[in-house]
Amino acid sequence: SMKEVLTQKAHELFALCDRENKGFIGKRDMQRMIQELPLEPDQLEDVFDSLDVDGNGFLTLEEFTAGFGSFLGLDEAD
């Protein structure tokens, strides 16, 4: 299904950020991406904050997947 594909893809991208396989992405992981992505530190901070919907400072796979879905224009609802 579309949701399965989305989840799988999000998982792959999540793993790019979560190199230690912690199961979450912290701001430090995001800051490390600055060297590899054509984004400004401020922009990565923006991305992090907009994905971190509960504002706890950690991005879970669930939050990441939801953000990826909204980037693709998919609604969260089934």
């Binding site: 790019l16 922009q43 923006d46 991305v47």
Partner: peptide, 30 residues
């Protein structure tokens, strides 16, 4: 200043940029 990052309205484009970059990186990796 609308060109300044962090203004809120930039988030969507920045998010798209971020995911696009990740996808490109993923595609480019061996």
């Amino acid at each position: 200043d609308p060109t300044k990052p962090g203004a809120g309205v930039t988030s969507e484009g920045v998010l798209a940029n971020f995911f696009n970059s990740l996808l490109n990186k993923k595609a480019g990796s061996p």
